[in-house]
Write a protein that binds this DNA or RNA. Structure first.
Lengths: 167, 167
DNA sequence: TTGGAATGTCAACAAGGCTGACATAAAGTT
DNA sequence: AACTTTATGTCAGCCTTGTTGACATTCCAA
């Protein structure tokens, strides 16, 4: 008996049909748009993009982090990140200090101005997330995080868990 | 007593602390990368990008859909979508037929070749989603979808629900 | 001390968003 | 019939953000 995709065992596996999976895929697509919509609007006003938000978020999260570390979290090339960092540094939102131990490293910190933008962005994003969480309830939130974690690539899951613990 | 953000009532609202919300935000970020990783690899090999995937997905989902309808689902400009559609039509993955009732409309369909790519892409993406669902279990999946739906913008939620029902 | 590895910067290119202007055909309205 | 609106396509040009290649600096180990 070939158990073709879309034809679950018959017990309680209805959530694994192709149709259910497809709904999950589309939910992910539409929800991600909502997830980024508010910060995107704020950033556009100031001439920044989503990449700047990501950099600001993770620098705020781990002050003094190196470019290399940020690179592996963001999963982009160093050249791409560098462009973003350069503009943030020029505009006085991020400070780059030469590493004390290893002078090749640049330690990254948000300035007061950078912190202010970070708060503005994360407030907008958190408000939406909080509303969604409140509406969905604690059990749904737990399931939400469980599924997302299972969906991550190994590398990303490591970063996620490290941040989660150090939080 | 000001009840600052991050200081919930004290009962069962622990899931609404800033820290919990932040975890949700980071989970969303890392998971979306995993979500797109497999199709991205396949597309890159063939000289296409994520935009082509989105078009292919929704044309497959609603064969005969019009350009205008696709525009409102994808939330991009017609110039941007047109660039993508033009290459898909030139390459013989999508067919554009003049509307029968309203001859201004172009009805979009996947060709056999387009369908084959669609299956290749959705198989990869579904496999990952299915693995995540299986690992997380049915209750988590239900919570996952509940939270995502609450996170969507109104317009997107309408599209999502319409597709969900017509599925 | 010297050569390789690690770290970061600069330059140039491509994908895929965007706006604005304009063309065409069909449909709807007066 | 004349006019307006709608649906679509196209050209030109801009921006962000990804890419690769070349290069400078610094560290470390042979």
């Amino acid at each position: 008996m070939a158990e073709g995709s879309g034809h679950p065992g018959g017990e309680g596996l209805l959530f694994l049909t192709d149709e259910q999976i497809r709904k999950g895929i589309e939910a992910m697509f539409f929800a991600y748009r909502g997830f980024t919509a508010d910060p995107d609007r704020i950033l556009a006003d100031k001439g920044y993009g989503r990449a700047h938000h990501r950099a600001i978020h993770f620098i705020n999260r781990s002050p003094g982090t190196t470019v290399n570390n940020l690179l592996s979290i963001l999963g982009v090339t160093k050249q791409s990140l560098n462009r973003v960092l350069r503009s943030l540094i020029e505009d006085g939102l991020v400070e780059s200090r030469v590493g004390a131990r290893d002078k090749r490293e640049r330690k990254l910190y948000l300035t007061e101005v950078g912190s202010a933008l970070e708060r503005e962005l994360s407030t907008a994003q958190r408000d939406r997330m909080r509303a969604a969480f409140r509406q969905a309830g604690p059990e749904a939130v737990s399931g939400f995080r469980t599924v997302l974690e299972a969906m991550m690539d190994g590398d990303m899951r490591r970063h996620y868990k490290r941040l989660k613990e150090n939080g």
